[in-house]
Amino acid sequence: MDFLDEIVLTGLTVFGRHGVYTHEREEGQDFTIDLRLRLSLDQAAASDDVTDTVHYGELAEKVAAIVAGEPVKLIETLAERIASAALEDERVQNVTVTVHKPHAPIPLNFADVAVTVNRSRPPQALEDITI
C-alpha cells in the first residue's frame, strides 16, 4: 500500500452511562464520538462497490452499540474499545478516536472534555528471508 486515505465520521452522539461517579452511571448522558480511519480506498474507488470499503453506516452502528453498552469508568477505556472495534476490519491501518463528554461533572463553566486515542494495526511479521 503506497498511501492511506481517510474515512471520517464526526459528531456521532449516543446516550451512555459511563463515568467514575455513581450518579453518572444512574442518570447517563450523551457522548459524542469522532472517528478518523486511515486505509487505502483505491480498490473501492475503482470498483464503486461498498464491499470494497469500510461501510461507515455499519461502523457507526457498532460504535453506537459500544457507547450505549456496558458502562466503563473512564472515557479513555471507551475510546480504546471503539478503536479496537474499528481495527477489526483488516483494511483499517490506523484509527483516531475522540470521545467527547460535554456534560462531565466539573463544577465550572466549560464547553467540552475529550479524550483522543490513536491506534495502529501492528506491523505484519516478515517471513523468513533466505538470501
Rank of each mutant, 00 (worst) to 15 (best):
A114N: 11
A114E: 08
S84R: 13
T10G: 11
Q43K: 10
D2V: 12
V92E: 01
L126A: 15
Y21A: 14
D42E: 14
S84D: 15
V54G: 04
D34Q: 14
V67D: 03
G19T: 06
S40L: 00
V92M: 01
R25C: 04
N118C: 12
E61G: 07
L35F: 07
T10P: 04
R17G: 03
R25N: 09
T51V: 14
G57M: 08
G69Q: 08
L126W: 07
H18N: 04
D52H: 13
L41M: 12
L108V: 14
I75C: 02
I75E: 01
I66F: 13
D48P: 02
I129A: 11
E70H: 10
R25G: 05
I66M: 15
D49F: 05
D49S: 12
V99M: 05
A125C: 03
P123N: 07
D5R: 06
S47M: 02
V50G: 10
I33N: 03
T32C: 08
A86F: 00
G11Y: 04
A104T: 12
R121T: 11
T13R: 13
S120M: 13
A46G: 01
L9R: 14
R119A: 14
V67N: 02
L35Y: 09
H100L: 07
H100F: 02
R38T: 04
E127Q: 12
E58F: 00
G57Y: 08
V113D: 02
G69A: 09
R91L: 02
D5H: 11
R121Y: 06
L12P: 04
G57Q: 09
E76M: 03
L74Y: 02
D112Q: 11
D30H: 10
V92S: 00
V92G: 01
D2M: 12
K101G: 09
V92A: 02
P107Y: 08
D49W: 06
D52M: 04
V72W: 00
A68W: 00
I66A: 14
A111Y: 03
G57T: 11
A114P: 04
D89K: 01
Q93D: 10
L108D: 08
E24Y: 06
E6S: 13
N94P: 00
D128F: 06
R121E: 12
N118M: 10
A60D: 12
G69D: 08
V20T: 05
R121A: 15
A85G: 07
E70P: 04
L74C: 06
A83E: 03
V115C: 12
L4Q: 14
V113I: 11
Q29G: 09
L74G: 06
T13P: 01
S47Y: 01
D48C: 04
L4A: 12
V115F: 11
T77V: 14
R119G: 02
I33M: 02
A79K: 03
A85C: 15
L35S: 08
G11A: 10
R81V: 07
D52V: 02
T77F: 06
L87H: 09
S40V: 00
E58Y: 00
R81S: 13
V115T: 08
R38N: 10
L39T: 01
N94K: 13
E27L: 15
Q124R: 15
